[in-house]
Simulated assay, not measured.
Amino acid sequence: MHRNHKLYHFLVERTWSLTENWYESLDKENSLGVYASNDPLVIDKVKQQNHEFHIRFCKVFDNNESSEQFSIHFDEWINSISKDEEHLNTPIDVILHEFFVTQNQYLDLIEEFVRTSSETYSQETINRWNRVVIKNFNYVMTVFTREYHAHSQLRLKAQQELIIELSSPIISLSSSLALLPIVGEIDTDRARFILENTLNQCVDKGIRHLLLDLSGVVIIDTMVAHQIFQLIESLSLIGVKATLSGIRPEIAQTAIQIGIDFSKTSIVSSLEQAIATSKTY
């Protein structure tokens, strides 16, 4: 049995010194993210988070704490830290390094406890305590890495969606006329977003005529070209006239090769022409 009342209290009494010693040992000049911050609020928060870690971790030696309770309480801490914005802005390898530093703090404290204790503990008992520390740090780091990755992916997806949205704006030119300038590389996901976002915004804004300018698009593949012209057909179904401008020769060739019919599409060579021919709207 690894639980020991005296060891537990020995560790609990040193939780704040563990935090302060850990923070003082940080190489802030060469560190990154949350550990390099000079913001007093960030520094205070990361210390509180570290101290909360110790309060929960010490319970692994508490006679009144079951293994199930320990996991539940620690999972709460892990979930909170893994989605913390400051930690998400810190490379995962830097965070894991600090976990290993903290693990060594516990191994050193166990050594100190044995050395200063009035009781004598067998090497088997000491080894058991050390294995418990390492085992539970492995658990914490494994779960933290998994949760950190999950939250990072969610944040990345949200950022990508925002970038796509900002890169495909519907610009109102009048109460019923709008411009959609498409710039940069278009992949399948972005083309799908443009289709959905454009239809929704045209309905919301009461647009009757949309100028779709492709002069900022260098190249698109056949699937994307099909989706762009599918957008034009979808616009007509909701009563919106579309005028295409700025089609490069490569894009025109791709459209012809996949059999897109231009006969019902209003096409002009430039955005200036498109605006000039839309004066009646």
Score class of each variant (00 low, 15 high):
155 R>P: 10
202 C>V: 03
100 F>D: 13
211 L>I: 10
105 Q>N: 11
184 G>M: 05
175 S>D: 12
150 A>Q: 15
222 T>R: 09
163 I>W: 04
123 Q>T: 03
180 L>Y: 07
105 Q>Y: 10
182 I>E: 00
167 S>A: 06
160 Q>S: 15
164 I>P: 10
209 H>D: 00
198 T>M: 05
219 I>H: 10
91 P>N: 00
117 S>D: 14
138 N>W: 10
128 R>P: 09
111 E>Q: 07
197 N>F: 08
92 I>E: 04
149 H>Q: 15
103 Q>Y: 07
151 H>P: 02
134 I>K: 13
168 S>W: 02
160 Q>I: 09
125 T>Y: 11
131 R>P: 13
123 Q>C: 00
99 F>R: 04
141 M>H: 11
159 Q>C: 07
102 T>Q: 15
209 H>E: 02
92 I>D: 03
130 N>Y: 11
205 K>E: 05
123 Q>N: 08
103 Q>D: 06
187 D>S: 04
218 V>A: 13
168 S>T: 15
171 I>D: 06
183 V>W: 13
173 L>G: 00
143 V>N: 01
214 L>Y: 09
213 D>A: 00
161 E>C: 11
144 F>K: 04
107 L>F: 05
125 T>S: 13
134 I>T: 14
97 H>P: 04
160 Q>W: 13
126 I>P: 00
220 I>C: 08
165 E>G: 00
120 T>P: 06
143 V>E: 04
139 Y>E: 03
119 E>S: 09
181 P>I: 00
109 L>S: 02
117 S>T: 02
212 L>E: 06
122 S>C: 01
103 Q>V: 02
208 R>G: 03
180 L>D: 05
163 I>C: 05
194 I>F: 13
109 L>W: 08
131 R>A: 15
178 A>G: 05
183 V>K: 10
